[in-house]
Design a protein around this nucleic acid. Structure first.
Lengths: 404, 404
DNA sequence: TAATTAAGTCAAGCGAGTTGACTTAATGCG
DNA sequence: CGCATTAAGTCAACTCGCTTGACTTAATTA
């Protein structure tokens, strides 16, 4: 991003930028509305029928869209709807977490086509990278078995891991210090030959909700992620917002009370890590998921107490998020079993009053998003797809190296 | 913004969009870097010399830029720098507050050329509108005396007033309920014949800091505004963020503590309204500004106590803003006298630890912005200028009705 | 004085969306 | 039944703004 000259300026654009934008707009329209005819697209995008026709023709020959059977709907020539081709593009997603690492391969629609997982050495990134490269190679092989074109249509590798990134060195083991220092992106870019991008786990969760979940087509949404840590993924103006240094939404480190002795970070009270500690569970147990589920179903008193306490703080977090961002909806997602997440959302009600408490709402103030433990890897994979196919401001600029 | 059809899609673009974007990019580059030659602009924007030449020629004939004397700087033909022409555009800004209403006329560079103020009837918007229209007519007359082209070059009227907007009816007098219900925009648009836009006071403050203040050229900044109320103006990715319903940043209503009896909104503890109440001052006094200044200079115990209390809560607000937004800097602005604001910032130190506490910072975590009481009106006026001349995503789309 | 370097112009070219007429293929009315 | 109407989609010429590459201008430097 550094300019060659010291002059600060945005990049200009030209016909290529125009064309790239219009292609992306078509793809987004098909993603949000399902199949549409050329005439529909022309009306929706304000382009002429002819321009749309040319673009669709291109996209079709690129294998990104395909025509369906013509449909008669009243007078006039029947229209030919087009839909996206899921096999038009693929991406790899990698979720590095404290106790488990997952890799997935997804298609243009966000369907997971291959998955693999492994344990990583907590403090030895160089050994871990070898394991990761093997995981990735594995899902790539699986993918190649599904589509012969997969390698050619692979748009990138998205990585999600706990943030924040780039801070002063820390010995806090919650932050995976050894991994924070390791040149992961460069190593994986070299090892895979793919474009590599990084985001924190909460951002990946929001990306997942946007491509296949509750934030699909919503331009202003905040995704509150309760995992081992806790964070917020921010969808603002239809794009993921990452802040000045990629750490926006890292609310786990937010201190809870302005007053009182020894303010506590939210993460120490409302994350799964705090739950493990509260109940004396070992997060490295392979059946930790089942253990938690059983405790919830049995209404274990310790579990219920933790839910109440966490809900108390999360309720206030939602209030704060609504007050600060004015989103259309807040989505709670979690790496915990669905039963637990559902109880948590229930325990958060009634919500605190806020500016979100307005007349004429269509979306709920708070909704439960996915609790699929693979969704962060899915979101990680969705990031390169979004970068390649969504209409973004940056995609219009001359410097942008976007595909499509 | 409602689509004619139910199909959801972004608008496409064409050469007009390209051209509009490139013109805006030129203007922004000149605004951020001062005078630049065509060759400089070509390098900075990645456009060809020829394209830049054509655009600059256009802008010059439109009266938006002007050539300076050629400068020799080493070998080669001397370059001819161009700079923006302040009189290239004007805008009117209106700041409606609880006790005083101000109107200003500003030029393209954000210089205030005319100003006027008046008291409004607190509960009678229809009478108030007449006063406002007179204020606006006044600054327009003054402006016409400065530039004969002023009317032709007037890009719009920006309004700033306390939010939040569009909530359920409220009797809370802090929120100026009568004004919230009145069809202000329509009335003023009709009464002035200008394009009218609305933002809350904190957003206007951020807009002001961006055009002439500490946020000039900063892409990620949060402007904390301590006025009669309290709010945050959000500059994200170089654009003002207003949320799903225009109420983003309304942190005055944020409840302070998740725990404890009777949570208090921030606004009731750290705004000037709370100061007036704390000290028994009457905000409607015409010399209220001088009164506050004198109390600060005299180190009045009540004033010092309020500063300490407010600083305590504001310190935590900054921590929260940094944790959530990851901005490059936080700017504290205020309608209070500079001495008071300066004391407040001093009392906020040391700041709480946060992710902003990172190595290699160039901007301070917290800085004092303007305390000019006219700056909100200035920011209000800067909004239509920004809409007309800054490089925005929306300006590229076919639906955009931007000038330039 | 001549070579070098850089700013800026000229004129042809190109690419992507636009325009308006035209074709195709349904429905619906008399 | 047949023709008018409606709507999808195509054709071909056009326009507009950026690009290309050669050229001009005007300074420094050897």
């Amino acid at each position: 991003m550094d300019d060659i000259s010291p002059i600060r300026a945005k990049s200009g654009t030209n016909q290529e930028g125009t064309s790239a934008h219009n292609r992306r707009v078509m793809i987004e329209a098909l993603r949000l509305n399902g199949a549409l005819s050329r005439a529909d697209l022309a009306r929706a995008t304000q382009l002429t029928k002819q321009a749309v026709s040319n673009i669709i023709e291109d996209l079709e020959s690129d294998g990104l869209v395909v025509a369906l059977d013509a449909v008669r709907k009243g007078r006039g020539q029947p229209s030919t709807p087009y839909r996206l081709v899921p096999e038009g593009a693929f991406a790899i997603g990698l979720h590095i977490d404290r106790h488990l690492t997952r890799a997935v391969a997804v298609d243009l629609m966000g369907s997971v086509l291959a998955r693999a997982e492994a344990n990583l050495p907590f403090d030895e990134p160089s050994k871990g990278v070898e394991i990761i490269l093997e995981l990735i190679a594995g899902v790539r092989r699986d993918l190649a078995g599904i589509s012969v074109q997969s390698e050619k249509r692979l748009v990138g590798l998205g990585i999600a891991m706990p943030g924040p990134f780039g801070l002063k060195d820390s010995d806090d083991k919650w932050m995976m210090p050894a991994w924070q220092k390791f040149p992961l992106l460069e190593t994986l870019a070299k090892g895979t030959g793919l474009n590599v991008g990084l985001q924190n786990d909460a951002a990946a969760c929001a990306t997942a909700e946007r491509i296949v979940g509750a934030a699909h087509g919503v331009d202003h949404a905040v995704c509150l992620y309760v995992g081992y840590g806790i964070g917020a993924g921010l969808i603002l103006n239809g794009e993921l917002y990452s802040g000045g240094h990629g750490n926006a939404g890292e609310i786990g480190m937010a201190l809870l009370a302005p007053a009182g002795p020894g303010p506590t970070p939210l993460e120490h009270r409302a994350s799964l890590a705090s739950l493990y500690q509260h109940l004396g569970l070992n997060p490295a147990d392979s059946d930790i998921y089942q253990q938690m589920n059983a405790l919830v179903l049995a209404e274990n008193p310790g579990m219920m107490a933790w839910i109440d306490g966490a809900a108390h703080d999360l309720r206030w977090s939602v209030h704060l998020i609504e007050t600060i961002f004015d989103p259309q909806t807040v989505i709670l997602t979690s790496g915990a079993p669905e039963a637990l997440a559902r109880r948590l959302v229930e325990a958060m009600h009634p919500l605190l009053p806020s500016i979100a408490d307005r007349p004429g709402r269509t979306l709920p103030r708070l909704q439960l998003g996915t609790t699929d433990p693979w969704s962060i890897a899915l979101g990680a994979a969705a990031a390169p797809i979004s970068r390649a196919f969504d209409p973004l401001f940056s995609a219009i600029l001359k410097t942008s190296s976007g595909s499509v």
